[in-house]
Computed example of a mutant assay.
Amino acid sequence: MTPPWLPVAGRATRSVSCLIACNGHGLAQAPCLGTLLTDRVDGDKVHDDLVIVWRERPRFGPSLAFNASVIRAM
């Protein structure tokens, strides 16, 4: 959950975009924002609703438990 109860979409890496924290409204928000995220990945114009929750850079540092080396080892 996020403090303002808003979902967060953004770029996790250069080749990975993500949409997280749809909180209690996920049934309504996730399909809508997922479609908008798909349009952005396909190169279409970014919709205003996606701009509101978009973060170009991750706000948190990389996870020590789930980094590329650990995931490959698993």
Rank of each mutant, 00 (worst) to 15 (best):
H47V: 01
D42W: 07
C18K: 07
A30Q: 05
A28K: 10
L36T: 05
V51Y: 07
C22P: 00
G61K: 08
S63H: 08
N23G: 10
N23R: 10
D42S: 10
A65W: 04
S17Q: 08
C22D: 03
T35Q: 09
E56H: 13
V51E: 15
E56N: 14
L50Y: 06
N67T: 03
L19A: 08
V46L: 09
V41S: 02
A30W: 08
K45S: 15
L36F: 09
Q29F: 08
D49Y: 12
T35M: 04
R59N: 10
A21F: 02
F60P: 00
F60G: 03
V46W: 01
R40E: 06
G26E: 06
I52S: 08
L19V: 08
D49C: 09
H47R: 15
L27I: 10
A68S: 13
C22E: 04
P31L: 09
D39F: 01
L37E: 01
S63D: 13
A68Y: 06
S17M: 06
G24N: 09
R59F: 04
A30S: 11
L27M: 12
P62F: 00
V53Y: 02
S63Y: 05
N67V: 03
L37M: 12
P31R: 00
L64V: 10
R14H: 13
P31Q: 04
L27P: 00
C18N: 02
H47T: 02
F66N: 09
A65H: 11
T13L: 05
L64C: 05
T13Q: 02
L64T: 11
C22V: 11
I52E: 14
G43Y: 09
G34D: 07
R57Q: 15
H25F: 06
D42C: 12
C32S: 05
L19M: 07
G26D: 03
R59P: 00
